[in-house]
Amino acid sequence: MSHQDKREKKNRKKKTPIEEHLGRYDIRISGAGGQGIISTGMLLGEAISIGDGKNVSQSQSYGPEARGGATRADIIVSDGDIYFPECQEIDLLVAFTPEAYEKYSTAMKPDGIIVADKNAVNIMVGQAKVVTVPFIEIATKKFKRPIVANIIALGFISTFLGIVSQKSIKDAVEDRFASSSHLELNMKAIEEGFKLGREYKKKFS
């Protein structure tokens, strides 16, 4: 057996959560090209890193995969050093499309959680807990701008899961759009997300 074959065989084996002991939290944001996935990942990473003072490595996959419909941003959060900078087993998957949901929901940690757009979940895949939220619908109906769906989602995961402080994610969004005519729109969207997150938290607890 060649080394390459051996490696492929090893990779098919289920991976162990080797870095769990360091409190590592793996987030993947995924959707289609043009949905602002990468910049959503950047905002979240910046808010947790600069705002909340944790260690963050954020990477992304683009290229041929983006053309296939799935683009993703990985955000690794840890109190210690981050060694491998891509998601291994996902703690939180934020999925905006059915492709993204179906592709990555099998890579979840046993106690991981999926936050998906309502339209992304047609069939249940994998074992992980799934919360569906109509991000795109709200963005389109309430804000007339489907692109703010990801800002709403950022607000949502802040209050629903507490993985980023409200202040940090709000500041990060404000910094990003400070000199843009869309500042007010995005600030309203993040507040909408906070509100949704609180509502869902109540509903699920």
Binding site: G45, A47, S49, I50, G51, S168, D171, D175
Partner: peptide, 16 residues
């Protein structure tokens, strides 16, 4: 409010 982009020892911080 903007993110505080200064480290505890006074150096600029960036997430890049």
């Amino acid at each position: 409010m903007a993110l505080n982009r200064i480290s505890s020892d006074g150096h600029p911080l960036m997430f890049v």
